[in-house]
Design a protein around this nucleic acid. Structure first.
Lengths: 99, 99
DNA sequence: GCATTTGATCCGTTAAAATATATCATGACA
DNA sequence: TGTCATGATATATTTTAACGGATCAAATGC
């Protein structure tokens, strides 16, 4: 698979693990079969947009189409969002998104 | 077709038009058949990730996976990227302008 | 009036995603 | 030792994106 699709796959896997979800748990949440999630995370499939969005949503992620020249700024913002955990008090390390 | 996929489709179409490209021109650039581009822009197909990336790249766009709670900040940055035109001197309104 | 461009649509074929279901190896753990 | 959860695979089937290529209607231009 192409370099870009692999990047997305890695991001999905990292997001899942950071939430402490197993592939089967994510499967239950998203409706995507566990076996298929495994293939997706390993870049073994060229998944459809609807699958990607569904999976991303289940992980509290959104797909954004950004101009290439705006990427550095976007990444900078996302770095900040990632570090948000360190800003939070330790006693509220739970789930931050929707229900 | 889901609300989210439609959003992506619209973004692709807007990006293409803002570059003054016809569907056939984009087809030549990206390798994706014109008929298929039409379907994609109308949300008539659930396209594959590789197709989306290929098309986006041909339009100078990149796919980003962002935490939902970081979306406002990201959008704010992208708004700035869009306004980049106004920062540029008028005599260099070349490729990435908006009509 | 005729030719060109554009986006939308159709047909037939092929490749592959998505699915359900089951299995396997590994590691954790009581 | 046996059980359980995990991720990776296997098989078989259905669905459908992607493709080439043609066509069409509506603008646009000569």
């Amino acid at each position: 698979m192409s370099y870009a699709t692999k990047h997305i796959a890695d991001a999905l896997k990292a997001a899942r693990e950071s939430k402490g979800l197993s592939q089967r748990a994510l499967s239950a949440k998203s409706g995507v079969p566990q076996g298929h999630i495994s293939k997706i995370e390993n870049g073994a499939v060229d998944l459809r947009l609807s699958s990607l969005i569904e999976l991303a949503r289940s992980l509290g992620l959104e797909l954004v189409l950004a101009p290439r020249n705006a990427l550095p700024a976007v990444k900078s913002v996302l770095r900040g969002a990632g570090n948000e955990i360190s800003i939070r008090p330790a006693y509220s390390l739970d789930e931050d998104d929707h229900g």
